[in-house]
Amino acid sequence: MHKRVVFNNRVLPYLLLAPQILVTLVFFFWPAGQAIYQSAYIPDPFGLSSQFVGFGNFEFLLSDRYYLASFKTTVIFSTLVTVLSMGAALWLAVMADRVIKGSSAYKTLLVWPYAVAPAVAGVLWLFMFNPNVGLVAWYLKAMGYDWNHVLNDGEAMGLVVVASAWRQISYNFLFFLAGLQAIPKSVIEAAAIDGASFARRFWTIVFPLLSPTTFFLLVVNIVYAFFETFGVIHTITAGGPQQATTILVYKVFSDGFVGQDLGSSAAQSVILLFVVGLLTVVQFRYIERKVHY
């Protein structure tokens, strides 16, 4: 009875794959290859001449303690953004899942921030927390707390983390909610009949069953924190104060497009490429084992 569709044409599968492969080649392999090639040179900005330096750009970077500090900043930033955006989204999804009346209104409202571009989100948060004219900063001052993220590195980090996570909460929320609704009600009801409390039901049944979603979001959120938060940082702190919020991808930008140092910028992209590759491998190899499908 089992019906199988078989394509006898040997070329067709390749043809069907071709657009995707072409896109990957043009938009990923080609630029990545260029970056690797350029990382071995120190060119002048106009491309009039360039000096071959081999691994010189990498040596320069890895002996630069500010570059190494940027690694640490990136780890702290990405961890905070991921934990905050996923934690908040999970909490909101669990709550929204329980709401019966007007749940679609809640859901719609919770998804809205995702439509806001990172740079715009950055400006919104900057307006609220501007030490001089910001509304929140003003209230904080009224309560006796002198908010000044322009000079205080902890406050600056906190602000870019919240602004970055805020937008991503919506995205995570959607996936968590879908994940929650896919969990069979009968399992939860059985546990409830056995007298398990809500918290216990959540940690022993819902959370493990949600693990594929959580794992997927973990990968997506780390990639987000590494790359897409650029706009938020550019608009709020521009990497400051001192270098408190200079994450790796921001340094790629500032060295390449502000400093016109394309060799160093290319070398940093290559390093970043390897870091994210490594991270993804680790995630799939070690964390995925704990995931129940």
Partner: peptide, 19 residues
């Protein structure tokens, strides 16, 4: 050369003094 970036460095170091 690279003066835009050097200004960035100066900004960072001065911020350390002001703080």
């Amino acid at each position: 050369g690279s003066f835009d970036q050097i200004r960035g460095i100066i900004d960072e170091e001065l911020e350390a003094v002001w703080a």
